[in-house]
Structures are given as C-alpha cells and as structure tokens.
Design a protein around this nucleic acid. Structure first.
Lengths: 182, 182
DNA sequence: GAGTGTGAAATTGTTCACAGCG
DNA sequence: CGCTGTGAACAATTTCACACTC
C-alpha cells in the first residue's frame, strides 16, 4: 500500500513538490513510479517526531484547561502519559481528574526529582505562569506547552509551544475585517 | 508616551527592522526620532485586527473544551461576546455554562437566522466537526475556530483557525528528539 | 507510465543601512 | 541626535522541471 505525494498534498493542503522536498530532507524512502509505502512512511515520521517512546507529561493547573486536557482523547493513544496533575488551590487538591488525584503544587520539585517528566503543560492563570515555568525548568523539564496568555522566558535548550485562544480569535477577526479569502 | 521599534521587538521576540517593516505595511504612524505613540498605535492595531466592534461568537459543543472556553477570562474583555452555547447531547442541554443555558444543536439554524453570528467555535468530537462546520457555514458563519483534530473543508470566503493540542505536543517531542535549541 | 528526488529558477521574507524628519 | 520608513542586498522557501527508477 502506497500514497503519492499528490495524495498527501491534497490532504494536507500543500503542493506535491512541497511534500517531496520536505520528506526528502529526512532521507528518501519513496518508490519511484509508485509513491511512499504507507507503513514505512508512518514509521519514519514517528521516528522523526520522536514518538518511538512514551513521554511522561505533567499537568500544572487543574482548572478548566487542565480538565479539558486531562480528558483529551487520543492523547494516551499517541504515547503521551499524563503522569500527574498539580494545582495551587487547596480546594482542588485531592479532587480526581481522569483517574489522577490532583496534587499540591509544592510537591512538583520533589516528585520530579523522584520521577523526571519530559513535558509539562501549563494551564495556570497568566500571573502564575512564568514562576511555574521557572520552577519546572529548574526541576529538569525541557519542554513546555503553555496555555497562559504570556510569553514565557526560558533558558536555551528548553522548548516552549504556546496555545493562545485569544490570538487565534483575533486572527479570525482580522480575516473578517480585511475580507481575506481562505 | 511612545515606544520604539526596538522596545517592541524585544518584547515580541523580533528584530526592530521587522517591527518597522510590518507596521509600515499598514501605513506610517511613527514619529521619527521618537517612536510610535502608544495610544495611537494601539488604536491602529485594533483597527487593523477589526476589533473596533464586538463580535457575536457561538460555541458548539459543551464538553470540556466548551467549558474551558466559556469561562476564558479576557474573552469578553477583548470584545468577544459568547452569544450562545449548543450541544447535541440531551444530557447537556439545559445545563448552565458561564451564565448561558446550553441549547439543543437543532436550534442552530433557526437561532442564526434570527441573530447571525460572526464566529463559531467548534468543540465537538472529531467525527461531528465537519458536518457541524457545513451547517454553520450554510447558516452564514464566516469564521470558525476549530478544536477538533480534523482538517475542515470549507468554501472560499470562510476562514478556519485550528487549535490542535496533539500537534503542539508533537512539535515538542520533535524538539526533544532532535535536540533543537529554542 | 507514473511518481520520486533534486538541482536550478522564481518567489517570498528578512536584514541592512541610510536618507530624512522631529 | 534618535528613530522611523524604505529601497536595496541578502537569505530562506517554494515551485518548476526533468533525469531517473520502479
């Protein structure tokens, strides 16, 4: 079973040449005249993305965002294992979210010392996000997924991905206001 | 009160030249030797983004994502007014989320006919997202914020912004796996 | 014949550097 | 004198087009 660059491009909204160039960057595993063998392609992409192993993910902030993430389907399916959930609010501690008991934020350092995590998801209020990022980085976390609407400052070697819903909405208002086609 | 392109660049993680080029695209409203007058700058940017008026936003899907969004602070603050929340699940209908009673999804068409909305947020399961997008577009919605992990197909003139948490996480695993600095 | 892999051309985006204004 | 606005130089990305292989 194979897929052509054309078919992939159509699905992903790109051009066939784009797909080929991008894939060729990581090696050449397509068959000329045929396309890319799907199984092999998927395996290679998983390898490129580093999805060959499970990742320990911790969640900081058990508010609405935390709740939404804890129950996100196809999360565990992709090898992401939510190992712990933390919150600073005493009223949240001890409550259960997706089979995880919410732990006090003070325990983050000691827990991470015992069992390091690869990725931390920050779903705290904006005011607490930078301080939390600092603590997490100091405890060895090297990748942050930040939902707080602030630009986190982290040392080199730490990667931050931001999700900012207000920004996304403003991209939409811009499109509406400028009458851009999409 | 003014800000220089250098100061803006530092905050936003760009170069001064970049900031000046980008702003000059929309006109020249800086003062040479001084910088950009902050009040005027903010006013112009709001104008560019189309934030001069409030936007009616409807929310489809009253699950975790819907709940997180309904309570998102600094949402109303930015002129986004959540006008209605819908769900297909009978057990959710009638429940209250952020002072809004969840309405049955069948009412979308008639409600939109009476009061059009600018933007719809799709927080349904992936399987229902495309059908819902079709209905919304047919009812006149011109901008969609999609949280379902599917690539929506919409006619030209409709803008879609996607938020895909799994994708963001995979960007992080890629950075971790390839040892990229950030 | 169909479709990849890839240099070379075209395009797009970024940085430089400086004239000109406040 | 500081800082914007902007062409011109430079860098990165995308597209083209075609040799090559299955």
């Amino acid at each position: 079973m194979t897929v052509s660059s054309r078919a992939l491009a159509e699905r992903g909204g790109a051009t066939p040449a784009q797909v080929r160039k991008d894939l060729s960057f990581f090696g050449s595993f397509g068959k000329r005249g045929i396309g890319y063998p799907t199984i092999e392609l998927a395996r290679r992409i998983r390898g490129i993305l580093g999805l060959g192993r499970p990742y320990r993910v911790i969640l900081v902030g058990a508010g609405r965002i935390g709740a939404a993430l804890a129950n996100y389907p196809g999360f565990e399916a992709r090898g992401f294992d939510i190992a712990a959930i933390y919150d600073a609010d005493p009223s949240k501690i001890g409550t259960v979210l997706d089979a995880q008991t919410v732990r006090p934020a003070e325990r983050i350092e000691s827990d991470l010392a015992a069992e390091p995590a690869d990725i931390a998801v920050i779903g705290t209020p904006a005011a607490a996000a930078q301080a939390m990022a600092d603590r997490l980085v100091a405890s060895g976390v090297r990748a942050l997924l930040n939902f707080a609407p602030v630009a986190l400052v982290v040392p080199a070697g730490v990667t931050v991905a931001n999700v900012n819903m207000a920004l996304e909405l403003e991209a939409l208002t811009f499109a509406l206001a400028s009458g851009r086609r999409a």
